[in-house]
Design a binder for these strands. Structure first.
Lengths: 167, 167
DNA sequence: CTCAGTGCAAACCGTTTGCAGAACG
DNA sequence: CGTTCTGCAAACGGTTTGCACTGAG
């Protein structure tokens, strides 16, 4: 009886190439973590990844996942996100629209991706005005997704009754 | 000899009004924290605030600062930021351009504020296309400020040699 | 074989919470 | 005076790190 060889997502080979370029070993765990991230278009938490790698029959510890994610981010194959949930999420950058932005629903927490070509001009304008050299950006629009609006959700809002003007 | 009454920034009265509206006590510590935040246009960390309140001669613990900042954010007088440093920063929303965005220098960590009227149209477009109801947004552009460029700083970049295309 | 990688558990660090004593109203 | 707040210290939770052991090359 032969030990079954896991079949990874084709993009995992790209990560293997990066590791070899850097003179780093290509291990089962590293490939398993990469596979979990490349196999979906969702924004995964470390717990999500741990669950998926374990379900795939691989023995792995959280420390290895964090260390591998660090490599994946360094390789630019994966992008790290912080949606203010108290932990990070990870999303691969392959066969997706590059440099997309996020609509985040305050009711259900769902994340939708959008393309914002207008930001191009904005970055150029800002660069010209301030001398700042842009490298990357992060745009998150918070609000209510269509589904939650349809379900009757409403935006919470209870600041000062007469907010800013009166002093 | 009279105990000196601290003179707070005028905006602190607004916070007092909010507290009274909510039936909450207006305490020395709450006013001192509010004063520290309102007295500057910087983006303060909790440690920054602690230092400033103590320097003003007030005895305070971190727990109280966190609890007061929660109230300030709820009152909408103060905004919370997470620039990915591993801790939060706080900025008041009075007499500033509302809804401004941030240029964050990857070299020195400095934060510059910019106004991006283009985002208005972007949000409207997105809302029309996806049915998403925008409430607020967060735009952060990361790069190099003019000063750090002049000082010879350069953007780190070592991903895969041939990044995305080759599979 | 050798050296880097891995899992475990402890350390870390910003933030939150429980509780006895102090203040606000 | 009762209720809420405050400070302290311990708890919390995501992430990082030290170390003995395993596995890739």
């Amino acid at each position: 009886m032969k030990i079954e060889e896991p079949v990874f997502h084709p993009f995992v080979r790209l990560f293997g190439r990066y590791l070899r370029e850097q003179g780093l070993p290509v291990t089962q765990q590293r490939e398993a973590v990469a596979d979990a991230v490349f196999a979906t278009d969702e924004h995964l938490s470390v717990d999500d990844i741990e669950r998926r790698v374990r379900d795939a029959g691989e023995r792995i510890g959280k420390a290895t996942i964090y260390r591998t994610l660090d490599l994946l981010v360094r390789s630019r194959l994966v992008q790290e996100h912080d949606f203010g949930e108290g932990f990070k999420r990870y999303e691969h950058r392959l066969s997706r629209q590059p440099d997309h932005d996020h609509l985040i629903c305050l009711e259900c927490g769902g994340v939708t991706e959008v393309k914002s070509p207008e930001l191009r001009g904005l970055q150029d304008r800002v660069a010209g005005e301030t001398g700042f050299l842009p490298s990357r950006h992060k745009l998150e629009i918070y609000g209510l997704c269509a589904a939650c609006q349809a379900a009757g959700a409403t935006l919470p809002d209870q600041g000062l009754t007469c907010p800013i003007e009166a002093v």
